[in-house]
Design a protein around this nucleic acid. Structure first.
Lengths: 119, 119
DNA sequence: TCCATATTTCATATATAGTGGAAATAACAG
DNA sequence: CTGTTATTTCCACTATATATGAAATATGGA
C-alpha cells in the first residue's frame, strides 16, 4: 500500500457512518451484505449510504459484487491488513521496542492465537 | 479508546501533512522535536503546522511540552497502540482467523521480536 | 413491454477542513 | 522596558466532505 492508499484508507474509516458500515461488513464476513440491508440495519438513506460505500470501495477496504438485483458488499480484509501493516511499519521504523510492545498487546487481545503459538 | 476517539485518531492521520508529521515524530522518539524544527524539515508555514499539530494533539496521538521558548512535540505511542488495538479488535470480533493472519504478518514485518519469541 | 425492486448518479445545500497573512502571546536576554 | 525568537490564535478564503430529494440505471418477473 502506497502513501495515497493509506490516506484514502484512513480517511474512509475516519467517519462514524463508514466505520459503522465497515464493522458491520467485518462481522458479516465472508457472506457479505446487500447495500439495501446495510441501509436498513444502520438506518441510513440509500443514496447517502451509496456515497459512503463508494468511498469505502475506492479506498480498497470493501469490495462489491452484483447478485441479481442486489449488490453484495464485503469487507476486504486483505486491504485492511495492508493498512495495518503500513501503520505498524511506520511505528517500527523508528521504534522496534514499541513494535514488540504493540504485537504483544495484540496477541493478548486477540481471541485466536497466531501461528507462533502452535509450535 | 472510545468511538469518538478512534474517529479523531484516524482523521488526524488521514491527511498527508499530518501523517508526515507523525512519522517524523515517531522517528524522533523519545527526544521529540520543536515545532519550528518540524516546520523547517517539512517546509510548512508555522501557522499551518500549528493547526495540524493542534489536531494531532487533540486526537491523543501527540503530546507537547514547553521547553524554554520552544514547544517540543512527541509522538504518543501509547495512543497510537490504543488506536491499533481498537482497529484489530473490530477485525477480530468477527474473524478470529483474520486476526491471527494479521498478527503473523506483523511479526514477520517487525524488526524486533515480541516477548513470545523470548521463551 | 410494463412494473416493482435495488442501487446509483445528479444536483444542490450546508458544514467542515485546509491554508496562510497578520496580529497576539510567551519566554528570555540585554 | 525593549527587542528577538518561537509558537499560537485570529481571520478570511478556498476546497473538500456530507447529506438528501429527485431522476436515472439495472435486474428480473408478469
Amino acid at each position: 500500500m502506497d502513501n495515497d492508499g493509506i490516506i484514502l484508507a484512513l480517511g474512509a474509516l475516519a467517519q462514524t457512518t463508514r466505520l459503522d458500515v465497515f464493522r458491520l461488513l467485518v462481522r458479516h464476513e465472508p457472506a457479505g451484505i446487500a447495500a439495501g440491508e446495510i441501509a436498513r440495519q444502520l438506518e441510513i438513506p440509500h443514496n447517502t449510504l451509496s456515497a459512503h460505500l463508494g468511498i469505502l470501495a475506492r479506498s480498497g477496504l470493501v469490495q462489491s459484487q452484483r447478485k441479481s438485483r442486489s449488490i453484495i458488499y464485503r469487507a476486504n480484509l486483505e486491504g485492511f491488513r495492508a493498512m495495518m501493516l503500513f501503520l505498524v511499519s511506520d511505528c517500527c521504523g523508528g521504534n522496534p521496542d514499541q513494535c514488540a510492545t504493540l504485537i504483544n498487546e495484540l496477541i493478548s487481545c486477540c481471541p485466536a492465537k497466531p501461528a507462533v503459538f502452535q509450535y
